[in-house]
């Protein structure tokens, strides 16, 4: 077995554009849950409206790609308002139910046959991001020992990680301001914040919109990255990967989602490559595992890893362990 090859695949996974995109969506989720305490179980819905807002603007309205990205984010604002206005005055669980349902409803609407002329139905949409690829400043691949990145991959990584770190910087500025202090107060006790004259509903709405917009931006990047989207790429499990990533890195930490995403993708691609090469080297007998099982096994292993993490570092890799030990009365 070629250990170097396995490792290089894993590193490519950990640094690839998907890791950045998931980190970005998890940063949005971190604003919701980590800082404001909002239970959003439908972050993938925000990604979906972002991705389709971008693709449809370009394909149906001949808009430039950057306009499409802005349209995608505007769709997220609308979705956040629709979800937030009826639920944010109620107890937290109502938002959880509304978001999880909305994300599924959206997926079914976008894949339905009546929407097909615009959304492409189950087949989705392709070839809408040429505008970005035309700007690629990289002319050749980058080789670092066994690591090899094509110029296309380099460009996508630059854009995706650049956006993600910009978003992290934005969140850093926001949470280290009085605005962020109110947000954390809302997370701790809404009534206490109200008793001090804070308009809790408005802050929760702002947080929901902001996190949703970052989710939509991640969705746009996901669409741009693969130049193809189908509604079934936006299944509920994506939201749960995002929760995993956020908790793995450490909720209510600015860099938590980024670290979480890198570790998550490293483990996932590492296990995949490791199992595959172990299998072809004959280390794992075919009666025990067949190649088609690998996908399931690696997720089971990630789940196990998460369980161990929760037992030994319950606040996540860079979470404040002391903070977590406080009994929340």
């Amino acid at each position: 077995m070629d250990v170097l090859a396995v490792l290089s695949v894993a590193i490519r996974g950990a640094l690839g554009p998907e890791a950045a995109i998931y980190a970005l969506a998890a940063i949005g989720l971190n604003i919701h849950f980590g800082y404001t305490g909002l239970l959003n179980f439908g972050q993938v819905g925000f990604m979906l409206v972002g991705a389709y807002g971008t693709a449809i603007s370009v394909l149906s309205f001949d808009a430039p790609l950057w306009v499409g990205v802005i349209v995608g984010m505007a769709c997220a604002v609308v979705l956040a308002l629709i979800l937030g206005i009826p639920t944010l005055r109620l107890r937290g669980d109502y938002l959880a139910i509304a978001t999880i349902a909305a994300a599924e409803v959206l997926r079914y609407v976008y894949r339905s046959s009546f929407a097909e002329p615009v959304t492409g139905g189950v087949f989705g949409l392709v070839q809408f991001a040429d505008g970005l690829y035309a700007l690629n400043p990289f002319s050749g691949p980058l080789e670092l020992g066994p690591l090899r990145f094509s110029d296309r991959a380099l460009w996508l990584m630059t854009v995706a990680w650049g956006t993600t770190f910009l978003a992290a910087a934005l969140v850093w500025l926001l949470v280290h301001s009085p605005w962020g202090r109110v947000l954390r107060a809302v997370r701790e006790d809404e009534d206490a914040a109200r008793s001090l004259g804070k308009n809790v509903f408005a802050y929760k709405m702002q947080a929901l919109v902001l996190g949703g917009v970052l989710g939509a931006l991640a969705g746009s990047l996901l669409a741009i990255n693969s130049q193809a989207i189908t509604p079934d790429a936006f299944i509920p499990i994506i939201t749960f990967y995002l929760w995993t990533i956020m908790i793995l890195g450490g909720a209510s930490r600015v860099l938590g989602p980024i670290l979480g995403s890198i570790v998550f993708w490293f483990l996932l691609t590492f296990l995949d490559a490791f199992l595959r090469s172990a299998m072809s080297a004959g280390w794992i007998p075919g009666t025990l595992l067949v190649p088609s099982d690998i996908g399931a096994v690696r997720f089971a292993a990630v789940g196990l890893g998460l369980m161990l993490l929760m037992m030994f570092r319950p606040a996540g890799l860079i979470g404040n362990q002391k903070e977590l030990r406080l009994d929340v009365r």
Partner: peptide
């Protein structure tokens, strides 16, 4: 402005 009989400290602040 009021305070609460059962205090509402913002625990993680």
């Amino acid at each position: 402005v009021r305070t609460f009989q059962l205090t509402k400290a913002l625990t993680r602040l």
